[in-house]
Design a protein around this nucleic acid. Structure first.
Lengths: 345, 345
DNA sequence: GTTAGCACTCCACTTAATCGAGTGCTAACA
DNA sequence: TGTTAGCACTCGATTAAGTGGAGTGCTAAC
């Protein structure tokens, strides 16, 4: 291992990866010899390539084929890519995100844009509610034995829950309960609504303790139900565009994941907890991916922020020979846009 | 056209279609000769097949291949199938639909069951709200210049809408508005909330007419937004299992439709308006489908009912060589189950 | 250290050959 | 008249063989 990754090797590796990204086919010494500006003959390139292969940055699918980047090679590539372009503020292309109050629409729009910009499969999660504060609770009597609970949490997310009462309830009690709930629960996170809190509420409510616990259960259910984070996707069929992903089981598994959404939610969740460097952008190449079935893909994710400390994640799945530069660029601008959209609101 | 479709031809046609459904490959005379109980030599079968081809029930992909059913052949098949099995009450297999108040979960469960039972791609729409009555409206003040409107319609569907007010509003006004809205709009369908109604309301509200129209707009928006009917899907990747659908553009288009959902919503909408015979089950074979891109598939749909005259549609998409019998059976039982679940509620 | 040249490898692609399922037709048979 | 056996023929699918070309590794010269 006395071999060193000098600048020339670096350049050659770069050239290999870039042309491979474009063509998707193993690239040979001759191609590089012509492509690069440092004029070297194919023979020289061959020697260097041989070294690079020894070092594990590239590999041959079979004898007498060109070289393709290994996971390690990709990794080096994206790392230097990120380092070099870090400070460069990417110009924000104007997106057609029309101002909608409904967050869902924004998110749907965003994944769509991303998918059509990149030609990969994309996904996004809405903000998660883990440490979200209750902002407003409203109980309404729909029928004499049926309540509708509406809970608004930070970020103006609204949840509904129907409550079938075991006993009837008069208007006055509803009013009282409303007052109670709002004064007691306001500003609390889901976790803070503890058992003690519930006991206290029951006590204050007096005789109607049975109903109160029913209501609280319903509210807790409504909020925690958010664990099923909504995931929006777009361009799942882009997977079929890349031969290395489209044949056999692979495609089925990937597209299933995009239909089921749950696996994606977990994936995005995972990346968030790993919490990348300052940029908030994470890249998983091949086997680095937290999901085993995606060992032939690359996954790039970015985390965006909502004002109240809530975060969501946007991600993209494509072949390992992904146009990382373009993808990262796109993610950065979208992330910036999302940040500003939601913070402003 | 002096040829007659006698019983023997009928039987042969049936045999052809059934074996084709299983194998997916053109079926030859020899196969039939062995399969059928009426003992006939392959030569005889050949003659009959030739007749059937003349009559347009079957066709040859190319010379010296076996025969495959034509659209007309399928049509005859499913028609007789439906006729024969009409009265037979299919035993209702117990489903794992746990009682949930959230309709979404039921629907998701149902498509999943259907997809795994049949191995085709499935979809379902929730009930549509076209002639739905407003049951309950609740305005709540979230902030001094922000209202939350919650609208409950028949069938206990809940819609939310945030309203950013141009002018501030005090508690009393909110209370008054609530009363007004509930007394005036209650029991009305969306269509009935006409301009005249709005004018009247504005008048009654007095000075706050600006706000009222804002509120009414929001409510109308919230309700009509339901036009984006929710569609749930499952088993989209089943499409990839059938070679005749999985290659080329076809697969991409179909799966895209399943991701976008809108095309499916239209498809299901379409079938509903055509309103099949008593069973509520519709079968579109190949080019009969209302959507051009689906000319190589068959679509089977069933309409289920909710108590209040609302209806939803459940559908299945697969290759033309679909196991119609099984599919129809499944749809019937699911339809029955949905009918009962929602009516009971 | 770089380059030219050459023999060798091996995949991808083409062409040819073969196989076999299936048909249509004719002639014999009940 | 309807049914069957037999046979020549068609045509896609599969296999086999052949070819081209891109690419490598190595050696020798610069």
């Amino acid at each position: 291992m006395e071999k060193e990754l000098d600048e020339r090797k670096q350049k050659i590796l770069n050239a290999i990866i870039q042309t491979y990204l474009e063509t998707g086919e193993p690239v040979g010494s001759r191609t590089i010899s012509k492509y690069t500006d440092l004029n070297l003959s194919s023979a020289t390139i061959r020697n260097e390539m041989s070294d690079l292969e020894d070092m594990g940055y590239i590999l041959q699918p079979h004898t007498s084929a060109g070289r393709i980047p290994s996971d390690k090679g990709y990794r080096l590539y994206v790392d230097t890519l990120m380092r070099e372009k870090e400070e460069e503020v990417s110009e924000i292309k104007e997106l057609m995100i029309q101002k909608t109050d409904r967050m869902e629409k924004v998110l749907k729009q965003v994944v769509k844009v991303l998918a059509s910009n990149t030609n990969y499969a994309t996904m996004i999660t809405g903000p998660s509610y883990h440490h979200t504060k209750v902002k407003f609770i409203q109980l309404s009597k729909v029928r004499v034995d049926q309540l509708l609970a509406v809970i608004v949490v930070d970020g103006n997310m609204v949840k509904n829950q129907m409550i079938d009462l075991e006993e009837e309830m008069d208007d006055e009690t509803v009013l009282k309960l409303n007052l109670l709930l709002n004064t007691q629960l306001n500003g609390l996170t889901v976790e803070e609504i503890s058992l003690g809190m519930i006991a206290k509420l029951k006590e204050q409510a007096g005789i109607h303790s049975g109903v109160v616990s029913q209501v609280l259960d319903a509210i807790a259910a409504a909020i925690s139900e958010e664990d099923e984070m909504p995931v929006f996707t777009s361009g799942a069929t882009n997977i079929l565009k890349y031969p290395e992903l489209s044949d056999g089981e692979m495609a089925t598994q990937l597209i299933s994941a995009f239909e089921e959404k749950r696996p994606l939610a977990e994936l995005l969740q995972e990346t968030k907890s790993e919490d990348g460097e300052e940029t908030g952008i994470q890249i998983y190449i091949g086997s680095e991916s937290p999901i085993k079935t995606m060992k032939d893909c690359s996954v790039v994710t970015a985390t965006y922020e909502l004002g109240d400390g809530m975060t969501g994640t946007i991600g993209i799945i494509g072949p390992k020979r992904m146009d990382y530069e373009n993808v990262v660029d796109n993610l950065k601008t979208l992330k910036a846009q999302l940040d500003s959209i939601f913070k402003k609101e």
